[in-house]
Write a protein that binds this DNA or RNA. Sequence first.
DNA 1: AAATACTTTTGCGATTTTTGAAATGAAAAG
DNA 2: CTTTTCATTTCAAAAATCGCAAAAGTATTT
Lengths: 294, 294
Amino acid sequence: MKSRSDDLYFLLSVVDSGGFSAAAEQLEVSVTRVSRAITRLEQSLNTTLLNRTTRKVSLTEEGRLFVEKVRGGLAALEEAEELLAIRKQKPAGRLRVDAANPFLLHQIVPHVRDFREAYPDIELELTASDRIVDLLERRIDVAIRIGPLEDSSLHARPIARSPLSVVASPDYLKRRGNCDSPDALRDHDIIGFTAPEALNFWYIGQGVRVRPSIRASSGEAIRQLCLSGNGLAYLSRFMIGADIEQGNLVELLSDHLVSPNPRELVNAVYYRNTTLSARIQVFLDFFETRWNFL
Amino acid sequence: MKSRSDDLYFLLSVVDSGGFSAAAEQLEVSVTRVSRAITRLEQSLNTTLLNRTTRKVSLTEEGRLFVEKVRGGLAALEEAEELLAIRKQKPAGRLRVDAANPFLLHQIVPHVRDFREAYPDIELELTASDRIVDLLERRIDVAIRIGPLEDSSLHARPIARSPLSVVASPDYLKRRGNCDSPDALRDHDIIGFTAPEALNFWYIGQGVRVRPSIRASSGEAIRQLCLSGNGLAYLSRFMIGADIEQGNLVELLSDHLVSPNPRELVNAVYYRNTTLSARIQVFLDFFETRWNFL
DNA sequence: AAATACTTTTGCGATTTTTGAAATGAAAAG
DNA sequence: CTTTTCATTTCAAAAATCGCAAAAGTATTT
């Protein structure tokens, strides 16, 4: 509540450098300041953080726990500042973004107006392709992919997660009855994928390989089929979140859903291990805060 | 680097309450202070965070991004303080912890000496049981479980993740050759579980159901079999981390491992949705920082 | 258009904190 | 026993923060 972040930085420096004077030198401040920062901190927390034996300082057990958590917190704060620094560079230029069609429609398109307003100098080019295509050849800067990545020659960074849910339309459920347990799936119509077959593996309980009575080749098609009461589907939250909120689809078996699972991860894929271009950076930061599928 | 946490709290309050005066009232300080805090912050960051139109304040786009990150950071810092507060209560009494045998051996037992030293008033009782047993009847306070949870009547909290790796002993590999691709698994001896069969599903590529040529009923047995060169095994990092470091086991197919997956999550299970007892809290905090399997 | 009703910002003296240099104290090293 | 190496404390100067009251805006109302 009251601890000044400056003092926390001092603490970290002391811990890392192993002494007050060393920390002072490292931070280019007087030893007095360091000493006082720690004292202030300890008093404010009413705890002894550092065990001072004249030659060395060592962390008390509470200090250890405290420092551990503090590190993460300060890192986040610094990231926040860094964000602004990047943004100040007024990123500009062309940015080619690729995503699977449903993701593009449901989670990117609705926000591009705001994005363009925030970064008017970035020319956004959106493309849709279901599989990972040749990013390099098509000059794509960043691709959003859902689920496990196949090509590991590219670099990827997880940026969000979109759990999968079993859903059905209310009228279907009225006709066919509810579905309370994984075993009850047998009594229902399942809308599945034509290919790859791995998509018809649902992460429920121990994992179930379903036998679809209807198949479609795209998630969007499955969603439509489900909305019009053709059966149960297992889809990513990002494309049915709105449907659920509006009551057009009902979640089933939520107690038996297994999370995390390989298909719920949303990754940003790009080449270059090195630092991302400001364009890509701001794009990801911008959208990360808007993707609000749980 | 220089932003003060106090000012950040002011910022948050302004954002949440929707105005300077409202924030001032909420924080029980003068409006002047709030205004100055924001000004100071903005100058220090050299950025306009708040868009003041007389009737209301709204976040600028940079402000939005900034606040978002800051929230997380401050939350972590507060957690750190809270930790100390809990610890100050000198938690005492009996704490019954249950875990699967290998986890108990590899990740708990090695640290109990330190734990006892840190919390001398807690009487630790450790039990091992492979499946979730009747926690209530056996009076277990907290159980550590790896992988998906079956009984959802209990409350669980993910506390760590322990990825799974495909491993083999160096001498086995010398004899039988390397294993570069998921397909190459066919040419190798697999050490699998006798039951449940679901454990012989490996999260590699699209997911592979392996056909073990040797089976054992416990992870520890599988580990031993693997160490003595009987074939490939797919085990949690927490039980083979040391083996890998010491070179007694070699990781295979790491490029094809799929993460996250349902079996890598380490959960703390307990009844009570309400606030955890100090005992359980400190136990989890203490060990979380020591479990260092990636 | 002018007046009104809110808000935020600013000027300024008083008050509280913070700072560095040097003094002090304390434990290890020679 | 003396020297060295740190950390803490003292003290006066310097800096920052604070609150009051006045000022400066900007929607809404008259």
